Simulated assay, not measured.
Amino acid sequence: MTKKITKITVDDDGGMNDFWEQVDAVGRTKITIQKDGRPTALSIEEAVLQKLAASALSGSIQSIRQFNELQRLAAEHKQREINRSVTTWRAIREAQRKRYVAHRREHGTEPRSFPHPDDIMIDERTGVQIIGPIDEDEYNDMRRTKRVIDVCLWQDALERPIRDDDSPTGGLLLAMLLNECLPRRERLSDADMMRKVMRREVMSKRQVLKEARQAWLDAGHVVKRGATFWSADTIVSLIKMLPDAARICGSDKLDEDAQLQALQNMIRQRVMCADD
């Protein structure tokens, strides 16, 4: 006996009409299901796909074919989106390069135009990534980061002479980590950073104290003259708590004040443990 397959026929002009809008809305409706023994909120679309995947894993030939076909179609759609993005951003990058060349030729400096052409990374398989500032606010954030890096290197110069081992100071460790967060064109090379460290090692303590305090002021902070920085162990502890901090900030069970309190308690507890 042949099963009868019901086909749905609607007026379709290739766009999002009322029917497809409703289909999309129903697919995004949230439901609660039991997953791994606990209630989990999923959209109907996600739940159906999970069910299909489970059926395929159980050995259903039809489900395996359907799942593979969906994967193939999804990959094709994704690649089309990537291709469109690559074409668009190639044109933007070329226009930015011409703008930068013209501005350097006329003014001798780079224009304040975003993004920088060297920050537009294009990959045929994965798409486009912007690794530098995309507006004035992000540009200012980048400049602040560079000032903090300079502060950290001055703190290294201040604290290194009073240490009894050759392990990195907290200032040097944080400077190296923050340097990796900058766009490649703005980073200090290992050689540049080492030259800064060595140049400051031979300066007088009085000069280092003066420069360190001024660097803090340039970064927007008033710090007592000769104040010491976090230790390398404390910096490592702060870095290790980032996943927990992200979970706290993403919790829908805590309001903003409760999240802030939880973060402060965690930092206070772990920093104290690291300092001990």
Rank of each mutant, 00 (worst) to 15 (best):
L172Y: 03
Q155D: 04
P111H: 04
D11F: 15
Q129S: 12
L52A: 05
G15P: 00
N17Y: 02
G59P: 05
K210V: 09
E138D: 07
L188K: 04
A219P: 07
I149Q: 08
A191W: 03
V23P: 00
Y139T: 04
R184G: 10
A258L: 08
I82H: 08
T29V: 09
L49Y: 05
I235T: 05
E124S: 15
D244Q: 08
R112E: 14
F114Y: 15
M194S: 10
A95L: 10
L172W: 06
A274M: 03
A258Q: 14
A91N: 08
L217F: 01
T228S: 12
I267S: 00
G27S: 11
T126F: 08
V26L: 15
K210N: 14
V128G: 03
V10F: 15
K3V: 12
R104E: 15
G250A: 13
A258G: 06
R163C: 08
R105F: 10
I248G: 04
A56F: 06
K35N: 13
I235N: 01
P168G: 01
D190C: 10
I131Q: 09
V202K: 10
E124N: 14
Q96D: 02
G127E: 09
V128N: 00
R84H: 13
L263F: 06
M193T: 07
L52R: 03
Q96R: 06
D137C: 12
G108V: 10
M193K: 06
A47G: 03
A74E: 15
G108L: 13
K30V: 14
A157F: 01
E159L: 08
M194P: 01
S55L: 12
G127Y: 10
H107G: 00
